[in-house]
């Protein structure tokens, strides 16, 4: 099947960048160290055992998880492949090919993501415990729910990138806006600091966007911060975004394609 082949290709393509992967792991881990000591100092200065439901150990685990999965989930690295082909006009030839455009790129990018979960994420999760004590999921069910949530986060992350890329259909300088969107995602997804640390009004703003579903939700499930009804609510919201955002992307892409065909690029 085409999409499975694309997924494998996307995965294999990453194998070529071995030295980049090693450098990436080292850099991600170093940033993890910096952020961990920052949180240690913050907890120390706050005089509290728990901030927003996070213990210090949770906060350290938070840095491990974000550094481990941030590149996979497209928060550390930005993606402009589709935007590039729209800008250069190469997309015209792609559109004549018999595949579903959104699924084409989704398959490829999922290949990259899965590669990075395994070869950039897991090494960091393995190295971290040698330096700090981490929180781990307490049951098999929690591991499964985390995996489910991480998978949905990948799709939403892809949608976020794809949708921004599609803006190139309308704006010549969409790339600049895309860069802002990417940097904004680091903040509003709860990558830089957990959303529970936010003041309520700021968190409310973030919750109106799909961004928390990319980082904050899987992490809160992993840590057990989200439990009971809150957990199901978070998963439900993620599922909603998977469906809604996929539809939004498809509609946006169709509108863009129509515009391209009518105006001739």
């Amino acid at each position: 099947m085409l999409y499975l082949a694309l997924f494998r290709k996307g995965f294999q393509r990453m194998m070529a960048y071995r030295s980049a992967t090693l450098a990436g792991i080292a850099t991600n881990f170093f940033f993890g160290l910096l952020r961990t000591y920052l949180f240690i100092a913050v907890f120390d200065a706050s005089g509290q055992v728990s901030i927003g439901g996070f213990s210090l150990r949770d906060a350290i685990t938070f840095t491990a998880l974000t550094q481990a999965f941030g590149s996979s989930l497209g928060i550390i690295n930005w993606w402009w492949e589709v935007g590039k082909t729209i800008e250069s006009g190469e997309i015209i030839t792609d559109l004549t090919k018999p595949f579903h455009y959104f699924s084409f790129w989704l398959s490829r990018d999922l290949g990259r993501m899965v590669f990075q979960v395994i070869f950039r994420g897991l090494p960091i999760m393995i190295v971290y415990p040698f330096f700090f004590e981490l929180t781990w999921p307490t049951s098999m069910a929690q591991w499964l729910l985390f995996s489910l949530s991480l998978s949905m986060a990948m799709i939403i992350s892809f949608c976020w990138h794809f949708w921004m890329n599609c803006l190139s259909f309308w704006f010549v300088n969409a790339k600049g806006f895309g860069r802002f969107a990417w940097l904004a995602a680091a903040f509003f997804s709860g990558f830089l600091i957990p959303l529970s640390f936010f003041p309520d009004w700021l968190k409310a703003i973030a919750m109106w966007t799909p961004l928390p579903a990319i980082i904050n939700t899987p992490i809160e499930i992993y840590l057990g911060v989200a439990q009971g009804a809150a957990l199901w609510e978070a998963l439900g919201l993620q599922l909603f975004w998977v469906i809604a955002f996929t539809i939004i992307c498809e509609l946006t892409f169709r509108a863009g394609r129509k515009r391209l065909v009518i105006q001739g690029g």
Partner: peptide, 18 residues
Amino acid sequence: KMSFIMEFASTFMGMILE
């Protein structure tokens, strides 16, 4: 020029969020 302004503004504002 426009591309420069956009990149400048977006990086500036994005980093302010950091």
